[in-house]
Amino acid sequence: MAFTKVNDISLHYSDDGPTDGPALVFANSLGTDLHLWDPILPHLPEGLRIIRYDKRGHGQSEVPPPPYSMGALVSDAEALLDHLNIRDCVFVGLSVGGMIGQGLAVKRLDQVRALVLSNTAAKIGTKELWQTRIDAVRAGGIASIADAVLDRWFSRDFLASPELGTWREMLISQSDEGYIGCSAAIAGTDFYTPTSGLRLPLLGIAGSEDGATPPDLVRETVDLVPGSEFQLMRRAGHLPCVEQPEAYAKHLMGFLRQIGHI
Rank of each mutant, 00 (worst) to 15 (best):
M1G: 10
K5T: 09
A23I: 04
F26Y: 09
A27T: 09
N28P: 05
L30M: 09
G31W: 07
L34D: 07
L36T: 06
R49V: 00
D54N: 06
P67Q: 13
S75D: 14
D76E: 07
D76K: 07
A77R: 14
H83R: 15
L84A: 07
V90R: 14
V92S: 11
G93L: 02
S95M: 09
V96D: 13
G98L: 05
L109I: 06
R113Y: 05
A114W: 13
L115D: 15
L115I: 11
V116F: 10
L117W: 07
A121C: 12
A121K: 13
A122R: 12
I124T: 11
G125I: 07
T126F: 10
D135H: 03
R138V: 01
R138W: 00
G140N: 05
W153F: 10
W153G: 00
W153Y: 05
F154P: 03
R156Q: 09
R156T: 05
F158N: 05
S161I: 05
E163T: 01
W167H: 11
W167A: 04
E169Q: 12
I172C: 07
Q174V: 01
D176M: 10
G181P: 00
C182Y: 02
A185C: 06
A185P: 02
T189N: 03
P194Q: 04
L202W: 02
G204W: 00
D210V: 03
P214V: 14
V222P: 09
V222E: 14
E229V: 02
M233R: 13
H238V: 14
P245F: 12
A247P: 13
Q258F: 09
